[in-house]
Nucleic acid binder design. Structure first.
Lengths: 237, 237
DNA sequence: CGGCAAATTGAGGTAGATCAATGTCGGTGG
DNA sequence: CCACCGACATTGATCTACCTCAATTTGCCG
């Protein structure tokens, strides 16, 4: 008998000390003695694609370090339009605003299956008071988020549709193999770049036709970059 | 004899303890004893309109709390186009990324005469290690910056030109008198909203013609808001 | 096999860009 | 004091990139 699942599956208390991606996340520099001080539960959770980790304006009691997968931060405007303000990937922190405010500033919705560690905000606060290392890590995470937000505006929400789509494709290259890139539904891509889904589809199509990209799957989510040079250069100056 | 002025005028060592806007800035919760620990110089500086406080990629050795005036954060894209990613006003911190990185992420250029306090990054670091209050202040400043960046994307870079301009006009209302709003050159406004200056001019003009705004100066920088309701509502749902 | 969800493709309309002329103000020098 | 100039905003007339609406295609799954 399969247990009923809600939005997330609880995987038990996290084993921070043996965490495989510890160097990417908040506790990158934490020492053994720091873990002793921890009394509140850090939990590992899994979300299926399309689930909300938290909602805008909900009480912000925890932050979430992302172990794997991709999360979109979504704002709904007063008149109901959806705007994706940022993407978070492995190593980023979702809900970092919990450290400075009472409620979350946006929805956090998973685009893929996502593994997170849920850390109560009090744990981070007390650790960062005691450990300068955590303190530095936190600064880096804030900076990472801010930088990402500015990049989002300056890179993929600027210029013609063709320029935006190319920037986006480049930004979504795989870390392991930069000649492969994975994108999202045309609707989501539109909400990220301020374009309509048809326009996104057309621009991707024209990159394929131009021999810059090659489809690797049937759905149009994964592409091989055949001509990285042209992808980066086209439409400059 | 008047001393030669470079970009900024040095006004001497800052008197933090008697600072009039201390509750808005970084040291809002600092106590007398905290100031004793400070050995590096905090300087008060004044910049005329149109000067750079710092440049993108320059070595980031200080951050700047803004005492008065308005600063634009500007990114130049590889192909030379200018994009304004955010505005900073009194109480905000320019160059906060100095705490987490070696170089600044954007140009900071004054739009008005601007008064700042220049604080060496080491001062902030050592204070925040010792004082939990500073630590909390810093978190709030990071959050303020991140929130502002996301707002910028979701509010004034989203929707039709008319919606953007109205959002912008509302965002630029004076704190003391919300029925007055001050905007910038049409070119700068365009670079903030992803529009051309002619479009900005037309949209402002149509708001005046519609009786929503009234020009208060000859240059088109200051307006009285005659119908705040319509300014907020028009073009919703 | 049929039905659904997502992407693609096409035709036509429009918001905003582009190109260009005109207007207004403030400063400067004769 | 007035003429001239440069900076900026405004206004007008086209043009076009992207949106809109709609039909078609593709793969997936029951």
């Amino acid at each position: 008998m399969i247990p009923i699942k809600t939005d997330s599956a609880w995987k038990g208390l996290a084993e921070c000390q043996s965490c495989g991606i510890r160097d990417m996340v908040l506790f990158e520099d934490l020492r053994a003695e720091d873990f002793q001080q921890m009394h509140l539960p850090i939990e590992e959770r899994v979300f299926q694609a399309g689930k909300a980790i938290y909602r805008m304006q909900a009480h912000a009691g925890s932050l979430y370090t992302i172990r794997s997968g991709t999360v979109k931060l979504v704002r709904i405007s007063p008149d109901g339009r959806e705007r994706i303000v940022r993407l978070l990937r492995a190593g980023a922190v979702a809900g970092i605003e919990a450290l400075a405010a009472d409620s979350y500033d946006s929805d956090a919705v998973t685009l893929t299956e996502v593994h997170v560690c849920r850390i109560p905000v009090d744990v981070v606060r007390s650790l960062s008071e005691r450990s300068p290392r955590i303190h530095i890590s936190l600064m880096r995470k804030w900076h990472q988020a801010l930088r990402e937000a500015d990049d989002w505006l300056a890179d993929i929400n600027f210029g013609t549709a063709a320029q935006r789509v190319r920037q986006f494709v480049m930004r979504m290259r795989h870390a392991e193999d930069p000649s492969v890139t994975t994108v999202f539904s045309r609707e989501d891509m539109g909400a990220m770049m301020g374009l309509k889904q048809e326009t996104v589809s057309r621009e991707l199509g024209s990159l394929v036709k131009a021999g810059v990209l090659k489809r690797l799957d049937t759905l149009g989510r994964t592409y091989r970059i055949l001509d990285a040079q042209r992808l980066a250069d086209m439409g400059e100056e």
